[in-house]
């Protein structure tokens, strides 16, 4: 019994070691893909908000949902940058080298998107305009320090 179990255990260990290396290789790429998916959610909501709030289209009655969705999605941003997931992506090493500053940038996004959601619920145009700018500054501020520059077309 013992004789049979031992080689099996070794096989299992070997197999799992191989799997982990293979996973580490694809993991940065997959994390980046996932990050882009989350970021694109932020982008979609904030773009929708700007089009309605700045009167480029008529309000279809969903402004509040977009604002709530933006604030909700913002709470995920702090969880999508695990250590070792930056290689070959636009995420800069500073994310992991300056974890406190990065956490502050995430907190700023959560705070400002929550404030924007409240401003939109309140309905005062002046407050909405300045809350929108603050949320945009949170996106821009993090991209300035933690995202690699690139051509967007």
């Amino acid at each position: 019994m013992r004789f049979k179990l031992f080689p099996c255990l070794i096989c299992l260990l070997l197999a799992s070691a191989l799997l982990t290396t293979a996973q580490a290789e694809t993991s940065a790429k997959n994390w980046s893909k996932y990050r882009h998916a989350v970021m694109d959610v932020l982008k979609g909501h904030i773009s929708a908000i700007s089009l309605v709030a700045f009167n480029q289209v008529e309000d279809t009655g969903h402004l509040k949902q977009h604002a709530a969705g933006l604030a909700e999605a913002a709470t995920e941003v702090g969880k999508i940058f695990p250590a070792g997931s930056g290689e070959g992506t636009h995420a800069l090493p500073a994310i992991w080298e300056q974890p406190e500053e990065f956490a502050a940038a995430v907190a700023e996004l959560e705070r400002t998107t929550q404030a924007l959601s409240e401003a939109i619920a309140g309905g005062d145009r002046r407050t909405i305009a300045s809350a929108f700018k603050a949320a945009g500054d949170a996106c821009k501020g993090c991209h300035e320090k933690f995202r690699e520059e690139h051509d967007h077309d």
Binding site: F54, K140, G141
Partner: peptide, 21 residues
Amino acid sequence: ELFLELGMLPDGDFVGGAMAE
């Protein structure tokens, strides 16, 4: 104009790097 004011690209992404500054 909106980009120069807020840093927002037409698709809702926000610019980074030297341009943010």
